[in-house]
Computed example of a mutant assay.
Amino acid sequence: MTRTLHHSRAKRLVLAAGAVAALCLTGPLLSACSGATESGAADRTSEVPGWDETATPATVSRQMNIDLPSKAADIRAARQNGFQDDGLLLAFTLPTSGVNAFVEQLRPERELRQRDEPRKSVAKPMTPFSHLDLPEPESLPDVREGQVCAPCGGDLNSLAIAVHRLGDSESRVYLRAVD
């Protein structure tokens, strides 16, 4: 009986030693694989979605099928490369007297809605205007907004507009599209 007990302890000791040895041998491999996976995920995350540094107001307005008004000033644009779709941002100021004509040429699906107060809860947009150093139109008071098209013709999936009155004589037009 003592021999069976001794044999059982020896067997457990050998199994435990084998498990420790296996961990010692495979542990570094597992952590190397784990590190590679985390690193690879971080690399993919930093690439997509990512901002296209070559985007210009001319290229973005062309992708949106929009002719910039001749009186547009402080024109800012960005393109964000996405997993499946790309986000497009275009913002500019216009004399307030020219805003209605610009909006009409876009032929929105419905008349733009007037919003007097900022939205109480604003979800972080996928393509934020903060990238252009501008506040999000949802966070501003006195904004007319609406969908221009969804779906749109050509490669454009959707196009939305927001117009914020900056003062008596000037307004900022915000355009956000999905391509």
Results as ranks from 00 to 15, higher is better:
1 M>F: 03
1 M>G: 14
3 R>G: 12
3 R>N: 14
4 T>D: 15
5 L>W: 14
6 H>R: 15
6 H>Y: 15
7 H>M: 15
9 R>G: 15
10 A>C: 12
13 L>A: 14
15 L>G: 08
16 A>K: 11
17 A>Q: 13
20 V>D: 11
22 A>I: 09
22 A>G: 08
24 C>Y: 12
27 G>C: 05
28 P>D: 11
29 L>R: 01
29 L>G: 04
30 L>M: 07
33 C>L: 12
37 T>A: 11
37 T>Y: 08
38 E>Q: 09
38 E>W: 09
38 E>L: 10
38 E>D: 05
41 A>E: 10
43 D>W: 12
44 R>V: 13
46 S>M: 13
47 E>C: 10
47 E>W: 10
47 E>K: 09
48 V>K: 14
49 P>M: 12
49 P>Y: 02
50 G>R: 09
51 W>N: 02
51 W>S: 03
53 E>F: 09
54 T>C: 07
54 T>L: 14
55 A>K: 11
55 A>I: 13
55 A>Y: 15
56 T>M: 14
57 P>H: 04
57 P>F: 01
60 V>W: 10
60 V>F: 07
61 S>W: 01
66 I>F: 13
67 D>I: 04
69 P>R: 13
69 P>E: 05
70 S>T: 14
70 S>N: 11
71 K>Q: 13
71 K>P: 01
72 A>S: 11
74 D>L: 04
74 D>E: 15
76 R>Q: 12
80 Q>K: 14
80 Q>E: 14
80 Q>I: 08
81 N>R: 15
82 G>L: 14
82 G>T: 10
84 Q>D: 15
84 Q>F: 15
90 L>P: 01
91 A>V: 09
92 F>I: 10
93 T>N: 15
96 T>V: 12
100 N>P: 02
104 E>K: 00
106 L>S: 07
108 P>E: 08
110 R>T: 12
110 R>M: 12
115 R>N: 07
120 K>D: 11
124 K>H: 09
125 P>M: 07
127 T>P: 01
128 P>S: 10
128 P>W: 03
131 H>D: 06
131 H>T: 08
132 L>I: 04
132 L>D: 04
135 P>Y: 06
137 P>L: 07
137 P>A: 06
137 P>N: 04
140 L>T: 00
140 L>C: 02
140 L>E: 05
141 P>S: 06
141 P>I: 00
141 P>R: 01
143 V>W: 06
145 E>D: 04
147 Q>A: 06
148 V>S: 02
148 V>D: 00
149 C>K: 00
150 A>C: 03
152 C>E: 06
152 C>I: 03
154 G>N: 06
156 L>I: 00
158 S>R: 05
160 A>S: 07
164 H>A: 11
165 R>S: 09
165 R>T: 09
166 L>N: 00
169 S>T: 08
171 S>F: 03
171 S>H: 01
172 R>F: 03
173 V>D: 05
174 Y>V: 00
176 R>M: 03
177 A>V: 02
179 D>L: 05
